[in-house]
């Protein structure tokens, strides 16, 4: 079990999302950075779609009431166990009674804590993701609070073997694996981000000046930004002829422009439908970059074709498959060692 000593700024249970219910007006929710979530799960032997804790900017303080295998992926919020810095993107064994805490946000703003076995909360409409406004899913449908006890399911046999293996090098209440996922998944720590987009459905309805400004000028993420969306500040964008739009489906990464002229990027907690003109859609391959961006960051939008965006997405999925195979190989090596140990 995880005892929450301090909840942090916004710590919620999230899996990749609640799919299949948008037609009923139920939003997707889910991890802001699903890619980091998936790798975090794979690193502890979980199904990649298992739920983890999404930790935002100021991390929580969590006591482990039982031995656990964990991993932290996503933004670097200076994780520590019993006061000692631990490394991310790798399995870490945490001994019963140890305390996980966080420090400064070095890079990115959201980190995922996956625990072998998964966060044990009842799924609601097929998902463990927290839908805050409807108090649905997650831990009682809300962010974690001081004094909460979050249950963890029992780890699988591969994770158990790794726990056994790592416990041999235990010191100060934890033990890190000596291998990690390559840092090819880290993102630039710059506050100037190039974000690839494809044309939105209503791109051609915008004025020439708006279309030029969208790609030539930076847009700053304002503090009025959350899991639902980021409000941007930049040159005013407008339609050539004002038009009443009918509500229709929107996506993670849809950039819509309300009549005020300042764009909004829709994210994990977006509504299922929206009625503002869509100037662009962020390419899936850059979802992690936008999920880890923070207020004050400057975004530079780069146009790519839908075809290119899909090619990049397929390449990234292929890379993830390779990483998964690599991790599973590591797990099996440990398991074989473990079993041959029994024979001796």
């Amino acid at each position: 079990m995880l005892n929450i000593h301090k909840p942090g700024l916004l710590t919620t249970v999230q899996d990749p999302g609640r799919f299949g219910f948008q037609k009923y007006g139920v939003i997707v929710s889910g991890a802001m950075d699903s890619f980091a979530l998936r790798i975090a799960n794979v690193l502890v032997g979980n199904d990649e779609n298992e739920a983890a804790l999404e930790i935002t900017l100021l991390g929580p303080e969590i006591e482990f009431t039982a031995d656990a295998l964990v991993s932290l992926c996503g933004g670097d919020l200076s994780p520590r166990v019993n006061g000692k810095s631990i490394r991310m993107w790798r399995p870490v064994f945490i001994e019963q009674g140890s305390v996980l805490s966080f420090g400064a946000a070095n890079q990115g703003i959201r980190t995922y804590l996956a625990v072998a076995g998964g966060i044990n909360v009842p799924p609601s409409l097929g998902s463990k993701s927290t839908y805050l406004r409807a108090t649905l899913g997650g831990y009682c449908g809300r962010p974690l609070k001081t004094g909460d006890h979050v249950k963890v399911s029992s780890p699988g046999c591969l994770a158990k073997s790794l726990i056994k293996h790592l416990s041999q090098t235990l010191a100060d209440g934890y033990a890190e694996a000596d291998w990690a996922v390559s840092n090819m998944f880290s993102f630039p720590s710059s506050d100037r981000l190039a974000i690839r987009v494809i044309k939105g459905r209503h791109f051609d309805l915008f004025t020439l000046e708006s279309k030029a400004a969208f790609f030539n000028e930076p847009f700053v993420i304002t503090p009025q930004s959350d899991r639902m969306g980021y409000r941007l500040k930049g040159p005013d964008l407008g339609l050539g002829h004002p038009e009443e739009m009918l509500s229709e489906a929107v996506c993670y990464g849809t950039i819509q422009v309300p009549p005020g002229g300042q764009p909004i990027i829709l994210l994990a907690d977006r509504p299922a439908t929206g009625g503002y003109p869509k100037i662009a859609e962020i390419a899936s391959v850059d979802f992690p970059a936008i999920a880890q961006a923070k207020p004050g960051d400057h975004l530079f939008f780069e146009l790519i074709s839908a075809k290119q965006a899909q090619l990049l997405l397929l390449q990234k999925e292929a890379m993830l498959r390779q990483v998964k195979q690599g991790i599973q190989l590591k797990f099996r090596e440990v398991k074989i060692d473990d079993e041959s140990g029994f024979e001796l």
């Binding site: 219910f21 037609k23 009918l246 229709e248 489906a249 299922a272």
Partner: peptide, 12 residues
């Protein structure tokens, strides 16, 4: 999933 709306239906 799919999302029906006023004049459209979107397929994810």
């Amino acid at each position: 999933e799919y999302v029906p709306a006023f004049t459209t239906i979107s397929v994810f």
